[in-house]
Structures are given as structure tokens and as C-alpha cells.
């Protein structure tokens, strides 16, 4: 990554133009041509710095439901439980964290009913309580990763 790549990543984390020639419009203030910007974004995506070029949706605004769930998993059962949890399509990500509440995952589905079913099924199949911690309020953040 060089300075130009860093400027692209810093400038385009949101606010991509909704115009007929968006790459041209985004390229101009960066001092790049449309073709240069497209080429660099393609390379950044190929190298894995970008997971995607496109939208980040606010999933709970279109009828779906999601929650953060936590479990206290005995260390010797951790891998087995992780495998079971990750096998659900509804589990969007899962992190091990260094706490007695050591497994944290997001469950997202088309309805609250389905999310509750997934949580209940995980609890039933593991015999471990699943703590449902849905978002009650979101506070505005600056959300920028400086490259």
C-alpha cells in the first residue's frame, strides 16, 4: 500500500457518489483519473485489504432481526461448541474473547422468531445457556479506520 492507496481507503469509507460516473467523481478530488481509481480499488480488493466495494447495510432497518449472544463455554468444550454454533447460516460472526463469557457471536435472520429459534437450538444442543443481548440503542460513532 502506498500513499495514494491510503488516501483512497481513508476517503472512501462511505460517501461514494451516487451519480452516473461515480468513480470519476470520486477520483477528481484525489487527483486521480477514473481508470486509476478503479484499478487501485481492484488491486486493494485482490490483496485482501478490502473485503468488498459496496454497501454496508443497516440490517435491522429492513425487517430482519439480529442480536449479540454470549456463552460461558468450558475450555475443553470450546472447539466442539464453536463448530456447532458456526454451522448455523444465521451466525454472522463469532469471536473467542478472554473472559468467563468467552464466546460472542452475532445471530441475524429474517425475523425475531427465527433468531430466538437459533438461540434456543444452540442452548438445547450444547446444554449451555445462551445470553441474548440485543441492541437497545445505538450511539453515533465516527467509524473510520485510518490506513
Amino acid at each position: 500500500m502506498d500513499d495514494i492507496d491510503r488516501r483512497i481507503v481513508n476517503a472512501l469509507q462511505g460517501g461514494f457518489p451516487l451519480t452516473r460516473r461515480p468513480f470519476a467523481d470520486a477520483a477528481a478530488p484525489l487527483g486521480l483519473s477514473e481508470a486509476e481509481l478503479i484499478g487501485r480499488i481492484r488491486k486493494l480488493r485482490e490483496s485482501g485489504v478490502l473485503s468488498r466495494f459496496g454497501p454496508m447495510f443497516n440490517a435491522d432497518r429492513f425487517g430482519g432481526h439480529n442480536t449479540l449472544a454470549a456463552m460461558v463455554v468450558p475450555e475443553e468444550r470450546f472447539d466442539e461448541v464453536a463448530e456447532l454454533v458456526n454451522a448455523f447460516d444465521e451466525v454472522a460472526h463469532n469471536y473467542a474473547r478472554d473472559h468467563s463469557f468467552n464466546m460472542w457471536f452475532v445471530v441475524a435472520a429474517e425475523s425475531r422468531v427465527r433468531v430466538d429459534e437459533v438461540l434456543a437450538e444452540i442452548a438445547a444442543r450444547t446444554g449451555i445457556s445462551v445470553h441474548d443481548m440485543p441492541k437497545q440503542r445505538e450511539f453515533l460513532v465516527q467509524l473510520r479506520f485510518e490506513a
Partner: peptide, 28 residues
């Protein structure tokens, strides 16, 4: 397409449009 995407962004259904970084790969 452009008009509908503008409305979706305005309504907050599209939270952000642009580069989606893997923070791990950026060094975070």
C-alpha cells in the same frame, strides 16, 4: 437505480457505501 439508492442511503438502510476494509489486514 441511482434514485432508489439515494433514498435507501437517506433512510439509513444503506449505512455506508464505499470501501469495506478488513481491519485486520490494515494492521488493526
Amino acid at each position: 437505480v441511482v434514485e432508489r439508492l439515494r433514498a435507501l442511503r437517506q433512510a439509513g438502510i444503506i449505512r455506508r457505501l464505499g470501501v469495506i476494509v478488513r481491519h485486520h489486514e490494515l494492521g488493526y
